[in-house]
């Protein structure tokens, strides 16, 4: 039941922001909605309801590392797409390795520092 609720709520919230991204111009402004916290809003709200506020707080702290990795990933995709003749689908999927490496790198580093 929990996962069904997550699926529909996540799908609806993401669709609303995607629709806004579709109609807003210029494109770079609409791109802001590519990093809208739609999944975060749903997940943190549902985590608070089902697992408690403390767990949501821990998730939000880790999310900072994920967001730093997202920044690096987006800059990587922007630079490569702008400079080289490469397919967006291929690049955005291959670039997920960059996101994973940086996000887990920061996560492990924060664990070592603790």
């Amino acid at each position: 039941m929990e996962y069904v609720a997550r699926f529909f709520i996540g799908g609806i919230v993401v669709s609303v922001f995607a629709f806004l991204g579709e109609i807003l111009r210029p494109k770079s402004f609409a791109g802001l909605l590519g990093a809208v916290p739609s999944v975060a809003l749903c997940t943190l709200a549902l985590t608070t309801i089902w697992q408690g506020a403390e767990e949501a707080k821990v998730q939000s702290f880790s999310m900072i590392w994920g967001a730093i990795a997202l920044l690096v990933y987006c800059v990587f995709v922007f630079v490569i797409l702008w400079k080289f003749k490469i397919n967006a689908l291929l690049l955005t999927f291959a670039g997920l390795g960059v996101w994973l490496a940086i996000a887990f790198g920061f996560h492990m580093l924060s664990g070592v520092m603790e």
Partner: peptide, 28 residues
């Protein structure tokens, strides 16, 4: 043009990711 449009979307998302950091930090 297709590549440039996708690149601009990624540039916008890079700026949005700064907002995402702020979102996570303020929520925490």
């Amino acid at each position: 043009r297709g590549r440039e449009a996708a690149a601009l979307d990624a540039a916008g998302a890079a700026l949005g990711s700064l907002g995402l950091m702020a979102f996570a930090f303020v929520f925490y």
